[in-house]
Design a binder for these strands. Structure first.
Lengths: 249, 249
DNA sequence: TTCTAATTGTGTTCTTTTGACCCATTTTTT
DNA sequence: AAAAAATGGGTCAAAAGAACACAATTAGAA
């Protein structure tokens, strides 16, 4: 066993004593966003050992009076200043020696946020967005956590269009399609994709001129201007409810 | 805070001391089986306070050298003698005061087993199968855990026919259909269901006479004998793999 | 201005899947 | 032998999915 349990030790150094062996509980966030081109994940550079100077998922210890989700929200805010509009638990990582210092069980969350730049917060020296396919080797078992988060994100997208929480208020069909393709890892026919999305009834047509949209930016390419859409939250949440009651096989 | 943290206490009574507050980690099992008629869940009667004599999910503390999954397997075996052929984590329950004694974070697993009768194990006074729709009020937050387990089971069934692990080696189409209907909470047309199941290509026709099947038993009703099927594990696992790579939207 | 390349929007056709339903077959009871 | 209960096989139309053709718009080059 790599982690340390100190028996019969007391005083200021080890003040929390229990009858049975315990574990430390952390909450990590796999924060995704989308800049209209790449699916991005937020990483922070560790300032301390172990894994000093390695990139890692933002997160930290859960306080005694917090649920894991509350801890995840708090840590995310402290370390990056971000508030997640969608937070979803997907699995627990409990391999005994995943942290070399002591036994740490972590509850990772998928957090979806609208894209904006972030500065490092109090705890972290540096925070940066990475395209999900260009992520450097991470600290601890965070590579595996990220990998499983992507699978879980896929499954979520199957049941409800969580994709919208990754998009700005206004977006184009090609952008929406690229997002689906990145998350699901496959290509769709342009026309069939648009037809299906429109038939879902959650898109509102907004015209063809973007109005203060961070993502929709005309590149200097000669091509037709795309239509701008927004999504209808009312119909969207109705869809989410139905996906929990009307199951196929 | 309901749970107790004893500072600066030492000796035999509280020998596990840490620098930061910790939590106790348990693994619970939501064990499902199917008798050909009802979806069943395994419960044990608690022999100790709190919630003495109340029914609860089998489970217990995770040892320092175990992952949560290993702990779940061990506890299940100790308490009920069962070995799960399918074990799947779905969520963590970490509300600070969910256990009145101290902070306990639990990792519940969905366990699917072939149906057989169980006797109580070492720890538990009594173990019994309950139809999922006739479960009494449970100890702790186990009602909520069971409820979320059923939702997670639905979603699993969407991605791969986990249902087969609940069935005996040989089964009939009506039995399979009933199982789907119970898990998914909706009815299917008899003929359409059979057509789709056959088209999946994971069923092998075995004839119309059952051979040593616990589940297939002719009731005393006047009706045609149903066909017997088994499932093709090779094609089934291939399907599972595909469901992770070939996503729709 | 005109032409070209890039990209988006709309429509068509064919195939597959789904949903709803009829009727024949088998088996036990009367 | 007839009736009742449950299964099996099949049809038909509607919906959904896959593949593909072509017109429209825009920026830059000729």
């Amino acid at each position: 066993m790599a982690h340390s349990v100190f028996k019969y030790r007391t005083g200021e150094a080890y003040p929390y004593c229990y009858k049975y062996p315990q574990v430390a509980l952390t909450a990590d966030c796999v924060v995704f966003s989308y800049d209209g081109k790449d699916l991005l994940v937020l990483l922070i550079k560790r300032g301390q050992e172990p894994f000093k100077d390695r990139w890692a998922l933002p997160g930290g210890f859960v306080n005694p009076d917090e649920t894991a989700e509350q801890g995840a929200r708090r840590e995310l805010l402290e370390e990056t200043g971000l508030e997640a509009s969608h937070l979803e638990q997907f699995k627990v990582f409990s391999t005994p020696d995943r942290d070399p210092r002591q036994r740490v069980v972590t509850v990772p969350f998928i957090a979806l946020v609208n894209h904006k730049s972030v500065a490092g917060g109090d705890d972290a020296a540096e925070a940066r967005w990475f395209p999900v396919d260009k992520v450097p080797p991470l600290a601890f078992d965070h590579d595996q956590i990220l990998s499983e988060a992507r699978t879980a994100l896929r499954r979520s997208l199957y049941f409800s269009p969580v994709s919208f929480t990754l998009l700005p208020p206004q977006f184009t069909m090609p952008q929406l399609q690229r997002l689906y393709e990145i998350i699901l890892g496959r290509k769709f026919d342009r026309r069939n994709f648009a037809r299906k999305m429109n038939s879902l009834g959650v898109l509102d047509f907004q015209g063809i001129e973007s109005v203060g949209n961070d993502v929709v930016e005309r590149k200097d390419v000669p091509s037709r201007k795309p239509s701008i859409f927004s999504f209808n939250r009312v119909k969207w949440s109705r869809m989410k409810d139905e996906s929990d009651t009307n199951f196929e096989f």
